[in-house]
Design a protein around this nucleic acid. Structure first.
Length: 655
RNA sequence: GCUGCCGUAGCUCAGUGGUAGAGCACCCCCUUGGUAAGGGGGAGGUCGGAAGUUCAAUCCUUCUCGGCAGCACCA
């Protein structure tokens, strides 16, 4: 190298000429010494790389300084290496495996007979600080594959050796060293360990399968967070605390909304207050669906496995189903409860679709009947793994805001479009404006021919384009029966949740033999669209609780107003006020306890009651109420009739 | 399901190889107080369950059930 010149385009658009083989550091140095000093990496044509990597061809080059966003990934990845070195120093015999940077931090998976505990963290962090302080440079080498395998095997690093073995033949075996410590790594790294800085913290230990495969060994994973400076890290740690405060399981208990208990693992006991929210949500969606051309149905819980065999669920979904023999259980304690022949099996429905097809199939359907939109607040049971259960977010008995649209292929785009519109309107009403869409395309293992898939994918994509909705493609992630749209919403503290979905299905109508009579008088196959907006009521309510930190909008609040007395003289008037509010359809409670108003205010504030009407002798005499809103110290005194009317107006659901 | 941690009063938690404690909540009494905890008293637990070690187990051991975190799976 050396005799050829290349053009480097900088972020400001300027183009400079360098000898081929120039490094990012040299480019930085040629721009400004200070830039070279601040540089930790370089983006070459958008790809983050080592500063020392020779650039051989024309490229767009962007120097990454430690304070740049792009440096976070390097800080975290380097910190992972530093942690691995520290762990191997402190706990000899521990094998290193992989340790990537992730959102907000990094982790490293170790193989060690004895697991780590959080009590090991201070020692590991201390050792990490030493390694960082030492500031050994990260150096990059390319090794011969067999030599590398031999090297790691000799060191007893069998997982690393396996990784190298499985790297594609075309891939270089890159080794990074930081002082004495050596690791197989794809890179890139910053110049020295010193650049990691001090803003890192080990957070938790957890098990993780080698290569994410539940049949393989369980490793110990250490999670940590790392940032450019302490302030950034503290902001993140505060966010974690905030998330913990908003935990719907905690709030659900505090607000007396629901509970779970071991006799019904994964199924919710809704308390009166929680069920108010549930019913409000369900009724809201019901009104939305009614006005959008859906017809509500209700289908059986227990269905013969014949239908599940026909639908394909028996084959593909059985391990997630609750199966029951259709047999009278024996009451004789000496005998088995069931005879053991299981000639006839039933299953609790895990999905509503096959049942909806049964309704579609009753009587002859004409093309004039399409699109036929059947909605159901379908109560489904899924036999979820115990370890997967999580409050309201992951349950075994769930109620979907489910519907199936039976239509012709040429109606897909318009139906998809109408659905997106409805979904956005609902999310907006419920307080979510940040929604991301993924279009999941055909997987390798799929039913139906390519021409059909072409039309199906185009149908969904056209619907998105027609509405100017941004989306991301997810190749290979579609269901075997058709492509789908996934809607991910972002909550108040930035976490994403997949809720809505729209799935095209060409397979089920075929398997269950659904047909309609077309204009030509012949039988045709309808296309089926599976769709949900909330996903499940349980989970969505969990998301709502966390999004609003329990302070639900007035129309959803279990108790919308508490009428609290200052002295017992106002008891009669408090009842009068509550009666008036109730008559206007509000959910009201009175608090006439022998307690001071401070105490009552505090208690109802903690219970997240949105509005309090405080009444004493004065209000009783003047027929007014002193209004106090959750989260505000202000009070305003208003005549009862106008206060009640305006609160009732405010409490109307958004639709 | 897998790995790790945890399981004491309704809730949040302390504690010890010699059969348990706080705060809040609950009940009673005093207090009628103007916007985030007025005072006093009382009741409440076979320390998740089973087995073992021990003179003695809530504490140590094993098993089991459940919870939590992560993994795998997923709405």
């Amino acid at each position: 190298m050396g005799d050829k010149n290349i053009n480097i385009t900088l972020p400001d658009g300027s183009v400079r000429s360098y000898e081929a083989g120039v490094t990012g550091l040299e480019v930085a140095d040629s721009i400004a010494k200070s830039l070279a000093k601040a540089a930790v990496g370089v983006k070459i044509n958008g790809v983050l790389s080592d500063l020392s990597l020779p650039i051989q061809a024309d490229a767009k080059v962007e120097i990454v300084r430690r304070q740049d966003d792009a440096a976070l990934e390097m800080i975290r990845h380097d910190a992972a290496h530093v942690m691995a070195e520290a762990v191997q120093k402190l706990y000899p015999g521990t094998q290193v495996t992989i340790g990537p940077s992730i959102e907000n931090g990094f982790y490293y998976d170790f193989a060690r007979n004895e697991p780590f505990s959080t009590e090991d963290f201070p020692a590991i962090e201390k050792e990490m600080r030493k390694i960082i302080e030492r500031g050994a440079p990260f150096t990059r080498e390319v090794w011969d594959r067999d030599e590398a395998i031999k090297y790691f095997k000799n060191k007893g690093e069998n997982y690393k050796a396996e990784l190298i073995q499985d790297l594609p033949e075309t891939e270089e075996i890159k080794i990074y060293k930081q002082g004495e410590w050596t690791d197989l790594c794809r890179g890139p790294h910053m110049p020295t360990t010193k650049h990691v800085g001090n803003a890192f913290k080990l957070l938790k230990v957890a098990g993780a399968y080698w290569r994410g495969d539940s049949n393989k060994a369980m490793l110990t994973r250490i999670y940590a967070t790392a940032w450019r400076d302490e302030k950034e890290m503290n902001d993140y740690l505060h966010m974690l605390e905030e998330a913990e405060k908003r935990d719907h399981r905690k709030l659900g208990k505090e607000m007396d909304l629901f509970h779970l208990q071991e006799e019904a693992q994964g199924s919710v006991f809704w308390h009166p207050k929680g069920y108010v929210i549930y019913n409000q949500m369900e009724n809201y969606i019901r009104r939305r669906l009614n006005d959008s051309g859906y017809q509500e149905v209700k289908t059986p819980q227990l269905i013969d496995n014949k239908l599940w065999i026909a639908s394909g669920h028996w084959g593909k979904f059985r391990e997630n189903m609750f199966v029951v023999p259709d047999e009278i259980p024996s009451t004789d304690d000496e005998k088995n409860i069931f005879g053991g022949k299981f000639e006839k099996l039933m299953a609790l429905k895990p999905m509503n679709c096959p049942a909806h097809v049964q309704i579609f199939k009753q009587g002859l359907k004409s093309y004039r009947d399409l699109p036929l939109r059947l909605a159901e607040f379908g109560c489904c049971h899924r036999n979820e793994a115990h370890g997967a259960l999580h409050g309201l977010m992951r349950v075994r008995q769930m109620t979907q805001d489910d519907a199936h649209i039976f239509c012709r292929e040429d109606q897909i785009t318009q139906e998809a479009q109408a659905f997106c519109k409805l979904l956005y309107a609902v999310y907006r009403d419920l307080g979510f404006s940040d929604v991301k869409i993924r279009l999941a395309l055909r997987p390798e293992n799929k039913a139906g021919d390519d021409a059909t898939w072409d039309r199906a994918e185009a149908g969904l994509e056209d619907a998105l384009k027609a509405q100017g909705l941004a989306y991301e493609l997810a190749p290979g992630e579609g269901a075997f029966y058709g492509p789908k749209l996934e809607f991910h919403l972002k909550d108040a503290i930035g976490r994403g949740w997949q809720c809505g979905t729209l799935q095209l299905d060409f397979v089920l109508p075929e398997r269950l033999d659904a047909t309609y009579i077309g204009e030509d008088g012949g039988r045709h196959r309808p296309v089926m669209l599976h769709r949900a907006i909330l996903g499940t009521l349980e989970r969505f309510i969990g998301i709502m609780i966390e999004n609003y930190a329990g302070k639900l909008p007035l129309w959803l609040a279990p108790v919308q107003c508490v009428v609290a007395t200052i002295t017992s003289e106002a008891d009669g008037y408090a009842d009068e006020v509550a009666g008036k509010l109730k008559a206007l359809g509000l959910r009201v409670e009175t608090d006439k306890r022998n307690e001071k108003i401070n105490y009552k205010v505090r208690e109802h504030s903690l219970a997240k009651v949105p509005v309090m009407f405080v009444v004493g002798a004065r209000e009783a005499a003047e027929q007014t109420v002193a209004i106090r809103r959750l989260g505000s110290q202000d009070q305003s005194v208003q005549p009862l009739p106008s206060a009640a009317e305006s609160l009732a107006g405010e409490a109307k659901p958004p639709y």
